[in-house]
Design a binder for these strands. Structure first.
Length: 838
DNA sequence: AAGGCGATGTTTTTT
DNA sequence: ACATCGCCTT
């Protein structure tokens, strides 16, 4: 399945008999509270469902879809259900499926704004001067393209970087502004050349038969506006519209929805203005605030009963958010009566904060007086900015606490994955210039600046693709030295892959012999990804070919392996001994594994362009670390919110750039953070933090002042640190503070010379005595297999030498990362790492 | 052509 | 601190 199964969307396949559905009872309604039920039953006309955090929004939304189907208001293919993420779309699909049994077969219009737009755009591409097989560029492609335009326009790329232009154009597209519609007031943008470059960029995209993400929406909008007949068709088709996370819509998405809804007005938008946290990428809270004006006669239904958090947590969240102006206003309440107050604690610095949270996580895992044992999966650390994650990663690594980072660099955005993808793109379409450009000299094929320029010139002169130009130059013998042979075999290889790939596309039943015939010796070809147990591999893959995986799947997966092997790309990372290399090989391996779900390379490439998520399910229990943004929609029994310091959170930059609006969005972020917690929410801040290598001190976040004191428990700072006498020192300074954060953090104590001296002493010999005593015990049972001077390899820190052993913990002097204390099971011997790439 | 070295700019993130 | 990038050297 490619995820672009368009046929059922347009051929009105109705897998469901209206009468059969209507006859079915509606058990899902019994399960709802009055507000949810009202939201589900108000099927006709515009509805705004204001759903606070944890109020059963998805439940109401899915029940509503079920209700539309059951009451025969709509057939599955007449409902347009839009979400922002693929994950949300998937979840909705699943839950509707669960409500209705298997009846949801055909809900072709459930998806993200972008995936639905692709579907429409492929159908009507010619109306905006595209072919229906247009390619979707990702951010990296866009930037490279713009860079070329900037250089060509003779603009100093230093002062006017491509990223800036990309941001500008993106902003315009979010606001549904085509180059012609950009207001004059913004003509000065980008050195007065902004609109000009925007226009050129769109031209280039058209010649490349490509679109970027913004175009997906914008082109559809253009089509709808310029072709009323097409619009009318979709309006007739999509009789009921549901929108999730409406507070995150931008102008283009709003217009898109309004056009589709204006005929029948059956639009139900679900959202929470207090959770609007994407203003910086074009979302307009105004959309949700204006809903009743935009859709006259709209019913507004508030979901306020919260099923997630304790009253203290809700009160803390509502105390913070009430400082915002211009809210639609909701009051969350819960039937739950008891629960722990929100905890607040101050620390000396960021490292201590990480240390304390690490210990706290371990304590919760074991269970405490107040809390019974908690799984690591039930705990999350939510940070404002991703660089804050490091302190936690470092700390958790050294104490051996399993963690998972959610978000971070997206799988498909990683260098090696993108390179591999470029190779696949070339195999499917050798004329893909952006892909060609990306990998023609990766691995090094002796092509430098000069060689590349010649290819460009030849291409321009003969109006050829880069691939054809390079081919012409090989025939003419215009490449010098190393390049001559390397480029020729590169081109030949692309030809072979392309032949396999196209034959695969023509006949799904192509057999394995195809590959063998075209590429002699391919049996041994893909050594890079052969598992070590090669002896078994033959029978294993035979078995696979016969059982779960259809025979046709085997080929393109094999082809992909072959491509990475023949191109020498896999070899780059096998030979690379930097710490990242094994991880990169691992990623390439999972890329190949991901291929198995698709019918062919092309299907995979299309899928990847839109679906950029990679939530791998993990059997191991782990504590989650993520940004507040990534946490939206999630919930955890225990949540840690570190780094509540002015400047960090609320972020200085946000306030500088967007003033009060920025501050309010930060406050909503705080609200989102607190409301992720079910049972226990712990907020913390540090007096000192290393920012860009510089020590900086900060004041506790202003949001801390907004926490209602009655619902907050102020914890005593650790003091365990440094062997116990810290606690005594601090206790002396405690006891008279008036504000909440003064109680949490007696800055004068921490700043006193005595405290600093103590810190220094502690840092020199951290807990020397107790550790050695403990190791004697550990040594007897858990014996490390490493000895001093062993060369070891660590997934994150790379290669290093063992310089100390304490039971299950090693002191390792890493070649790149310095000396670290590491739990032995997190390293392997270097020899082992050399033999086995992953 | 390719590797090494200093200047540079660092939120949040989806599609 | 740190990674990325462009320039400079070999």
């Amino acid at each position: 399945m490619t995820g672009f199964d368009e046929s059922d969307a347009f051929e009105a396949a109705v897998p469901l008999s209206r009468r059969a559905m209507a006859a079915r009872p509606a058990p899902y309604l019994d399960d709802l509270n009055p507000a949810q039920r009202a939201a589900v039953e108000a099927l006709d006309g515009p509805v705004l469902m204001l759903a606070g955090a944890g109020t059963g929004k998805t439940k109401a939304l899915t029940a509503r879809i079920a209700h539309l189907l059951t009451t025969a208001r709509a057939r599955p293919n007449e409902i347009l259900a839009v979400t922002f993420t693929n994950k949300a779309a998937r979840e909705m699909k699943e839950r509707v499926g669960r409500l209705l049994g298997e009846a949801v077969e055909g809900m072709p219009w459930m998806g993200t704004f972008h995936s639905i737009s692709v579907k429409i755009l492929r159908r009507h591409a010619e109306l905006v001067g595209l072919k229906s097989n247009f390619t979707i560029l990702d951010t990296d492609d866009q930037i490279r393209l713009m860079k070329q335009l900037i250089v060509a326009a003779n603009i100093d790329e230093k002062r006017w970087p491509a990223r800036m232009l990309a941001g500008l154009i993106d902003g315009w597209k979010n606001r549904a502004l085509t180059p012609q519609k950009v207001p004059n007031s913004e003509a000065a943008a980008f050195n007065h050349r902004g609109t000009e470059l925007y226009e050129q960029y769109q031209e280039r995209l058209k010649t490349l038969n490509a679109v970027d993400f913004g175009d997906l929406l914008l082109h559809v909008l253009t089509i709808f506006q310029a072709h009323p007949d097409v619009l009318a068709q979709y309006q007739r088709w999509l009789r009921y519209i549901l929108v999730d996370e409406y507070q995150d819509t931008n102008v283009a998405q709003y217009l898109w929805l309004r056009l589709l809804a204006q005929a029948h007005h059956n639009i139900c938008c679900v959202g929470d203005d207090d959770q609007s946290i994407y203003g910086w990428r074009g979302a307009e809270v105004g959309n949700i605030l204006r809903f009743e004006k935009d859709f006259p006669g709209a019913k507004v239904i508030r979901l306020e009963q919260n099923y997630r958090s304790t009253p203290h947590i809700l009160a803390a969240a509502s105390g913070v958010i009430s400082a915002n102006a211009g809210r639609l206003g909701k009051t969350l309440w819960t039937e739950v009566e008891d629960g722990h107050k929100v905890r607040l604690i101050g620390h000396w610095d960021g490292e201590e904060e990480a240390r304390w949270i690490g210990e706290e996580v371990e304590r919760l895992q074991k269970g405490t007086r107040d809390f019974k044992r908690m799984s690591l999966n039930d705990m999350a650390i939510l940070v404002r900015a991703s660089h804050q994650m490091r302190a936690f990663e470092d700390r958790f690594l050294t104490i051996g606490l399993p963690y998972r980072v959610i978000g971070g660099p997206r799988f498909y955005e990683r260098l090696e994955v993108r390179d591999a993808m470029a190779y696949f793109r070339l195999a499917v379409n050798p004329d893909d210039n952006l892909a060609f450009e990306r990998v023609v000299n990766t691995p090094k094929r002796g092509l430098g600046e000069k060689g590349m320029q010649e290819i460009y010139q030849t291409a321009r002169a003969g109006r050829l693709s880069l691939f054809d130009a390079a081919r012409l130059m090989t025939v003419r013998g215009e490449f010098k030295g190393k390049a001559a042979n390397a480029v020729r075999s590169f081109l030949d290889a692309i030809d072979r892959w392309n032949e396999v790939a196209s034959s695969r596309r023509r006949s799904a039943a192509a057999d394995v012999t195809d590959v063998r015939r075209i590429v002699p010796g391919s049996d041994e070809a893909f050594t890079a990804f052969e598992p070590e147990e090669t002896v078994d591999a033959g029978s294993a893959s035979d078995e696979q070919a016969l059982s779960d995986a259809p025979a046709s799947d085997y080929d393109h997966v094999r082809l992909a392996e072959l491509i990475l092997d023949e191109s020498g790309y896999a070899a780059i990372w096998q030979q690379d001994k930097t710490p990242e290399a094994p991880g990169r090989l691992e990623n390439l391996k999972s890329l190949i594994e991901g291929l198995e779900e698709f019918d062919n390379l092309q299907g995979f490439l299309e899928h990847v362009a839109l679906i950029m998520d990679n939530d791998s399910v993990d059997a191991v229990e782990k504590v989650s670390i993520m940004t507040l943004h990534a946490a939206k929609g999630l919930e955890f029994p225990a949540v840690f919110l570190p780094g509540w310091e002015d400047g960090l959170f609320p972020s200085q930059r946000s306030m500088d750039e967007s003033g009060l609006k920025g501050l309010e969005e930060e406050r909503r972020l705080a609200y989102v953070g607190i409301t992720r917690a079910e049972k226990l929410c712990t907020i913390s801040f540090a007096a000192n933090r290393r920012v860009y290598g510089q020590w900086q001190s900060a004041l506790p976040s202003r949001f801390i002042d907004e926490l209602p004191a009655d619902h907050v428990e102020v914890l005593t700072p650790p003091g365990l640190y440094g062997g116990g006498f810290g606690a005594a020192g601090m206790a002396a300074g405690f006891g008279g503070g008036s504000t909440i954060e003064q109680k949490a953090m007696k800055a004068d104590v921490y700043n006193s010379p005595g405290w600093k001296r103590m810190q220094a002493r502690g840092a020199d010999r951290p807990m020397a005595q107790p550790q050695e005593a403990r190791n004697m015990v550990i040594d007897a049972t858990a014996v490390s297999s490493f000895v001093l001077d062993d060369r070891v390899f660590h997934q994150k820190f790379g290669y290093g030498t063992v310089v100390g052993i304490e039971g299950d913990k090693l002191d390792v002097a890493f070649d790149k990362a310095g000396v670290k204390k590491i739990v032995a099971r997190f390293v392997v011997s270097a020899a082992q790492a050399d033999d086995v790439p992953f």
